[in-house]
Nucleic acid binder design. Structure first.
Lengths: 124, 124
DNA sequence: CCGAATCCGTGACGATACTG
DNA sequence: CAGTATCGTCACGGATTCGG
């Protein structure tokens, strides 16, 4: 008797799976973490999420906007200024994603140790 | 005064980022959720994580094994039997990833509504 | 028969250059 | 400054074959 609720996300036809796919994504996670402090403009976001390309950041933000997780504020100025912020829905993501980020930092030493011993076991 | 701890995962050179990348991944999330009930053999895992190919499941499990999140039990039988289970480290992932899965299911209707209104706004 | 390796196409990613 | 366009590369994912 598997006591788990058997999560619908596991079935390929379930729409909630597309939602999981969006959220269980490294760029999404980092963007949401960055925006959880407060709204940010594109350039600062690009600097904070170190290593992301302009193109991929744009695509990530578009997808998040489409899913109702961030909103896009365009200011008709020169130079142009565009700011992004989490929606109410996006803020509900803060806790789960923050937990994931904390996990990554808290357990990185164990992960690195596991990798080292695994690699040592594989190619001697 | 950004009160956030400024998460090292955001910097490209930080090792914890590789850990986040592994964990913030849709297949990883689904496999960990599946294994959180109890250990499972390959074939059942493949059936539970609906839509994953044999190859991708193998690779995902190898990566998780390398990172010390699952262990692999091979039984020298015929037909062959290979079982996977979460390590102690892997079980610490259960809560964060389960939270993500719950989020996906709890908010899917909002996400779908957002998508619909976004698409309606874009291509009239 | 089950688990996994091989081959191969597609699509995502990243770098660069260019426009409003 | 905030994107878009184009292109080369490569990892992901699917179909098939191998191995035990």
């Amino acid at each position: 008797m598997p006591e788990l609720p058997a999560f619908d996300v596991m079935t390929a036809t379930c729409p909630s799976r597309t939602s999981l796919a969006r959220v269980a994504n490294k760029w999404t996670a980092m963007v949401v973490i960055a925006l959880s402090a407060d709204r940010m403009r594109f350039r600062d976001l690009r600097a904070t999420v170190d290593g992301i390309s302009s193109k991929v950041l744009t695509e990530t933000l578009r997808d998040l906007e489409r899913d109702g997780i961030v909103t896009r504020h365009v200011y008709a100025e020169v130079p142009p200024r565009v700011e992004y912020e989490l929606t109410a829905l996006g803020r509900t993501l803060h806790a789960p994603i923050h937990a994931l980020g904390s996990w990554a930092e808290d357990h990185i030493s164990e992960v690195l140790a596991a990798r080292e011993s695994y690699d040592a076991r594989q190619c001697p």
